[in-house]
Design a protein around this nucleic acid. Structure first.
Lengths: 112, 112
DNA sequence: GTATTTACCTAATAAAATTAGGTATGTTTT
DNA sequence: AAAACATACCTAATTTTATTAGGTAAATAC
């Protein structure tokens, strides 16, 4: 079974959360981390991931450093000070949004 | 506090869910239902809603009937047979997607 | 009679993801 | 050694979806 793409609009926040938890990561590592933590149910596609990473750097939320490991280039990403600040509020906002959708999918039956 | 828009990509499934629960509804009613069931935390904007409804009709998942109530037109929407079928799988898919994001936001700490 | 609520809608733009690739090195399998 | 798979980066074109920013019109509340 192919893993499904992650919930739309959540990618940026997921990246920030991964970096908050792990300090620094490279792109390919993030795709594996998501597949693992969701038991292969969801994945982030590289075609969505890399542009999102570049935008976060552009917006000043991430910094990047390249390293050669085993003959291959890795671009590590880490949160900037500003990135750390915004991470908290974005995670909070996403959690609340998810909770609201849950409320709609599991509405209160209480009318009596 | 203004309610936030609903999680991106979830609108179509939310519409189907509302109609599954309520039999038939009109657009404006759906916007109120979402605000109510989320305690005014989330709303669906009409600018997103109406095009989404029209597309669902076009795709054969909804039918519509117009009624004049208190001098104003209401366009009621209801699930077609095909709409009912697809509703189940779309709700299931959205639930799994939400669960996966939850797993990423609340990762297992279990490494020992 | 003004504001708010009900009730529908669209056009232009922006944001985000998908589709569909491409490049290159290292590792494993046959 | 060739083929397949995994690692690791990337982009261009398109599509999907939502936002911004309105508009129309009738009923109701103030």
């Amino acid at each position: 079974m192919e893993p499904n793409p992650v919930v739309k609009g959540s990618l940026t926040t997921i990246i920030l959360k991964l970096l908050e938890d792990n300090g620094r990561m490279y792109g390919y590592e993030m795709t594996k981390a998501v597949r693992e933590s969701t038991a292969n149910k969801m994945s982030i596609t590289e075609a969505a991931l890399y542009p999102a990473l570049h935008k976060l750097v552009e917006d000043g939320l991430l910094t990047t450093t390249s390293e050669k490991v085993d003959g291959r280039i890795r671009k590590y990403y880490a949160l900037t000070k500003q990135g750390k600040k915004e991470t908290h509020s974005k995670i909070q906002a996403l959690k609340e949004a998810l909770d609201s959708v849950q409320l709609i999918l599991n509405p209160k039956l209480s009318n009596g």
